[in-house]
Design a protein around this nucleic acid. Sequence first.
DNA 1: TTAATATATGTAACTTGTTACACATTTTTT
DNA 2: AAAAAATGTGTAACAAGTTACATATATTAA
Lengths: 325, 325
Amino acid sequence: MATIKDVAKMAHVSVATVSRVINQKGYVNEDTKRLVMEAIEELNYVPNELARSLFQKKSHIIALVLPHLTSYYFSDLLEVIEDEVIKNNYRLMICNSKDDPEKESKYLKIFEQYNVDGIILLANTNRIEDYKKLNIPIIEIDHNLSDDIPSIASNNFLGGKLAADTLLKGGCKNILHFRGPSGLVTVQERTRGFNSVIEGENTKVFSYDLAFLKPDKKAIEETIKNHLDADGIFCESDVIAMLVIQALKKLGKSVPNDVQVIGFDNIQLACMMEPNITTIEQSSEKIGKTAIKMIMNLISGNTLESFNKIIDVKLIERETTKKSL
Amino acid sequence: MATIKDVAKMAHVSVATVSRVINQKGYVNEDTKRLVMEAIEELNYVPNELARSLFQKKSHIIALVLPHLTSYYFSDLLEVIEDEVIKNNYRLMICNSKDDPEKESKYLKIFEQYNVDGIILLANTNRIEDYKKLNIPIIEIDHNLSDDIPSIASNNFLGGKLAADTLLKGGCKNILHFRGPSGLVTVQERTRGFNSVIEGENTKVFSYDLAFLKPDKKAIEETIKNHLDADGIFCESDVIAMLVIQALKKLGKSVPNDVQVIGFDNIQLACMMEPNITTIEQSSEKIGKTAIKMIMNLISGNTLESFNKIIDVKLIERETTKKSL
DNA sequence: TTAATATATGTAACTTGTTACACATTTTTT
DNA sequence: AAAAAATGTGTAACAAGTTACATATATTAA
């Protein structure tokens, strides 16, 4: 592996000059520059990023902390984030905390050891103070663990409202609401939005909390059986919606004629199912891109145009709800 | 941020001694050791991994190269791999090549720049020679791009056989086979296994190639319509199986009474669907764990107990096939 | 024409660790 | 008791870059 010294020797210049050429910094004569470039080419020289990082105290690594890797929404987001990170000439380190304090500790240490440049928190943690102590730029996605950490999330309030609007317009009077874990701000916002529309309307709502990752199929079936008069169901994820639709079919209910169903996320499967699921789309594209823009701004010391960024959601009307009467 | 010098000063020893304590290497007096440990504790000292890596020419980073991040099988695998990597005190760098030559080039360079310790290839590439030139330990998962790179994959041949057995036992005489992309060895093996069982039996097979990532829903429906006499369908992924079942229902066919369906992978959704999908389970757990074991062995210069590792698959009989008559 | 400024390049210190080697002391072996 | 081996510790070189500073020359300004 060629080093900067080898290049310097071949080009008959000092390492400083080579460094200047590489980093396009300081004065370098055009002819010298050409010589150096040729030597770099000739030797297939690639600067050692570790040496560079050591000196500069930045590793060009972005850490993404998540609680798991197997939800469809996270996968979509991960795909976007990885792409944006690379486009900005950074590298992505995946940190799956799994809500395991030991694993999180390991990662907290790694962030220090590697001079990680930025952290994107997409997981819950009760060690937010330890993150802050690291003195590394942080942003949160879908969380609000500390007031002084910039955040980004979908407009979950609007999402809840849109869902309620849709069911109401379809004539629902008796709604079942399968929520996510009530500890999440995202879930709280959706509920707030949803209820803000329902309130005052002559409509009943029964809410039931479910895990997002592995929604309890049995609980869904039971709950539906206990509410056979329900004519609309708001599911806070498309996976829940899928399960709900399955359960309804089993009970001989027709979707959307007997019961209307609306999901959340708009994962790819939502339009693979029969019937295609009406849902509230969260744009993982926009969230991911904006998240990276924010963290890059923080890294370069710029001020953020918006500290708590909200990304619009969109109603995707498909076949599990009735079009406005 | 405290450095090794600060620790040395506080413990009244040289940096060499501190280094010896940290790395538990060479002779250190017990009392001295205690002093150093106390200083480390006191200063919250964390050794800089970049400096270490620079000297040792290893970064403790494992790179995982994939063609995308959004398939359920990959997500499961990723979850296992990340966990095992951390357990071995390495870090995972996600490299989503997206079959984009430019992005792959970027990553190829990064592997050099960071002295990446090992590469796990879970993606196709036409630059396998460039990977080899890096002189970094490599293994392939589900691929066989070069004879001199160790590999690991499910026993796809057996998987194909099991699928065929199951459909045959269920009495199928007219089988539709939705394959994956025929360029993949995994797919070739499944087909080989499947056909090896079917051959000689009085049974027809029609094969149709589909993309794994976004299987063409229309093509599935069309193909089924053109083969209304089919009584068994082998799908090389559970997602394809889901789509097939949807299509069959649309056509008024009952599963498994009119048509039996068997999938592949055993993703979580397979047992969320109604009816639960019979499938061939690939153990992402075993594949992931073994892959990491292999790459760790390569990194430490050990010889592999098996150069081309095959992981057993398992038939999971559920509701879309008939139990043996 | 002199002073000031811009251009061009090299030397050496610096980033934070690791480790070869030297040297001193202690313990064990013969 | 002398020699050999084991234990304990420090100095300084080294990994591969970046950059402050010194210095020299070429331009430009006064």
